[in-house]
């Protein structure tokens, strides 16, 4: 039987850095120590003025090709998760087809999700591959939230960094389920908890009331997360007929250390099984999970045959979880 498997992950972060000392300069009400103690982030990467999510996606994918895991001519479908597309239209995934010399026979589409996007992308890719429509999918998650954040909004700037991750997913002949089951959730009543209000059709032109900047209600998002994520984990384990002990590693969306530590304790997950890895790049939205997974693989914290739980949550409000066995 054809089953989807993760065959390779690469990522790219922009060159420009912003550390905590630089972030708080000129803002006496903040200290770099306070930012680090509450976020676990020491430095984040920011896209240059003329650098887009499409550019970061291209570089991450070129690294994937250079790694030898796949070639441009192999790719049959491009899924790009981004909330900062290069253009209002067309979708950035079709531009990437051309820029990356991927065959014109490949399908390509963008989908608009943030921190839950990687898990949703795995689900979409699983559908495409296991239904026999394609043999492989290039799943890219790329965002440049920094372009939406006001320079004096220290609280929000402290959290987010820009990055892209490219994941190659391919059919494998096996009876073993390598990715799944999935648990999904959405709550549109919380649409305004993380939002850029102007620029879309509802408020096309920024004005004093509706601006083209990222607004985040941190406590409301925190409250949503601590009530939703543990239930998602519980349901996922129940659906898979597993317990916490059956999972070798837990990789949640790397929101910030404070939130992750509380989520870990609440679900009673051992510290050594729980991934926290964002200190040098910040919360990179839809790219956090594949980046953390790639780094954990590189550090040999995850080995072949390990079962990893992936949980994404955030803007939407949207959340999703899945289990993934490393081939």
């Amino acid at each position: 039987m054809k089953k989807i498997a993760i065959k390779g992950i690469e990522y790219h972060v922009p060159d420009k850095t912003l550390n905590n000392d630089e972030l708080v300069a000129g803002h006496d009400d903040w200290t770099s120590e306070k930012i680090f103690s509450k976020t676990g982030i020491a430095e984040r990467r920011l896209a240059a003025e003329d650098e887009t999510a499409g550019d970061l996606a291209e570089k991450a994918t070129l690294k994937l090709f250079e790694s030898g895991v796949c070639k441009a001519e192999d790719i049959q479908f491009i899924l790009l998760c981004t909330e900062s597309p290069d253009y209002f239209l067309p979708c950035t995934a079709t531009l990437l087809q051309d820029r990356l010399n991927i065959p014109k026979t490949a399908g390509a589409l963008d989908f608009n999700l943030g921190c839950s996007g990687f898990v949703y992308g795995l689900s979409l890719a699983k559908g495409l591959i296991e239904s026999g429509q394609v043999d492989n999918v290039l799943l890219i998650t790329s965002d440049t939230y920094s372009k939406f954040i006001e320079s004096d909004d220290i609280g929000v700037r402290a959290i987010f960094g820009d990055a892209a991750a490219a994941t190659f997913l391919e059919a494998e002949d096996t009876d073993q389920e390598l990715i799944g089951p999935f648990v999904f959730g959405s709550n549109g009543a919380g649409y305004d908890k993380i939002i850029v209000e102007a620029g879309g059709a509802r408020h096309p032109n920024p004005d004093e009331q509706f601006q083209r900047k990222l607004l985040m209600n941190g406590p409301e998002v925190f409250s949503f997360t601590i009530s939703t994520v543990p239930r998602t984990v519980k349901k996922l384990l129940s659906d898979a007929n597993l317990t916490l002990d059956d999972v070798d590693k837990f990789i949640y969306h790397q929101a910030n250390t404070y939130m992750l530590e509380h989520l870990r304790k609440k679900s009673k997950i051992d510290e050594d099984k729980f991934c926290v890895d964002m200190e040098d790049i910040g919360n990179t939205v839809s790219a956090t999970i594949p980046i953390a997974l790639k780094r954990a693989l590189d550090r040999n914290e995850i080995k072949s045959g390990d079962r990893v739980m992936l949980v994404g949550f955030g803007v939407g409000l949207s959340w999703a979880g899945t289990l993934c066995t490393i081939p």
């Binding site: 509450k38 609280g155 209600n217 941190g218 406590p219 925190f222 409250s223 601590i226 404070y258 509380h262 304790k265 609440k266």
Partner: peptide, 14 residues
């Protein structure tokens, strides 16, 4: 501030 609110949420939950 928002950090104080998050600490209250954690304290009540934990």
């Amino acid at each position: 501030d928002s950090i104080a609110m998050m600490e209250i949420l954690v304290f009540l939950d934990e």
